[in-house]
């Protein structure tokens, strides 16, 4: 930062006397990423285009997804659920209004006795029902395929809770405290699995995947479905997999093996 600090030139806070354009150019030159420009007391232009852009606009197409191997998932193990709750600041208590971003589901074929246990979370659908029904645009799908709730826009109407066939959305009905800085959540908004978007952007797998690996079950693979060389794409090309309720046509990003 020291090179920046040496930049000469001064800018008084009210922009006194300078033409706004000249001032703006100067600000651009000096700051690169400066955002606010005060023209006169109380008159401020936000240089919207100057905000540093991050990983938006991926050069290669990215669609994050999961492959869950129900054959490897251990019945009774809840490591992924605990890891999700711990990382995102959710309660362990399965109370009636506690959030469930991920849950263990057990399926049984009563005729044969065949049973499998596996985790289900938001399937980060390509044609997400939650996004379709959301009246405010709060439910949205990022370019990398992660479906999120923008809680700044959510009005708590709970349409998405009704619309999602995977029951992946929860509603926060009470005041929340002690949130994690990376997982803001508050009363009156819908929420669901974020695929641990902060971890993913830091190059780490979601907390559930890491926990499953730590527990030694290695039942979950996370990665970019669009990268043919990624572990998840290679695995998907090798083994027979399906998605839950594929007939609904929502195009989940979460694939399952062994169900």
């Amino acid at each position: 930062m020291s090179d920046r600090s040496q930049t000469t030139g001064s800018l008084d806070e009210e922009g006194g006397g300078q033409e706004p354009d000249a001032l703006r150019r100067k600000l651009l030159k000096l700051a690169g990423a400066a955002v606010a420009l005060t023209l006169a007391p109380g008159v401020t232009v936000l240089a919207r285009d100057l905000v540093v852009k991050g990983s938006g606009g991926h050069k290669t197409p990215v669609r994050y997804g999961l492959l869950i191997d129900a054959n490897a998932c251990k019945s009774g193990c809840e490591s992924c659920v605990r890891a999700c709750q711990d990382y995102n600041g959710l309660s362990h208590d399965p109370g009636p209004d506690n959030a469930q971003w991920i849950r263990k589901v057990t399926i049984v074929n009563p005729k044969t006795g065949f049973s499998r246990s596996f985790p289900v979370m938001c399937q980060h659908c390509e044609n997400a029902a939650c996004v379709d029904v959301c009246p405010t645009g709060a439910s949205f799908r990022r370019p990398d395929g992660i479906v999120l709730v923008d809680k700044h826009r959510c009005i708590g109407c709970r349409y998405c809770l009704m619309a999602c066939p995977y029951k992946a959305r929860s509603f926060v009905a009470r005041n929340v405290s002690d949130q994690k800085p990376w997982a803001p959540r508050g009363k009156g908004t819908a929420e669901g699995c974020t695929m641990c978007v902060e971890r993913v952007e830091a190059g780490k797998p979601p907390a559930c995947v890491a926990a499953c690996n730590r527990a030694g079950h290695k039942a979950m693979v996370f990665g970019n479905l669009h990268d043919p060389k990624s572990a998840i794409a290679l695995r998907l090309s090798e083994v027979a997999t399906t998605t839950i309720r594929a007939d609904l046509g929502l195009g989940p990003s979460v694939h399952y093996r062994g169900i």
């Binding site: 936000l46 905000v51 991050g54």
Partner: peptide
Amino acid sequence: MLLRTVREDIVRRDARDTR
């Protein structure tokens, strides 16, 4: 205004790399 602008960038525009 900064917070409002930046929150749009971080949440919706996939641009977490802001100062």
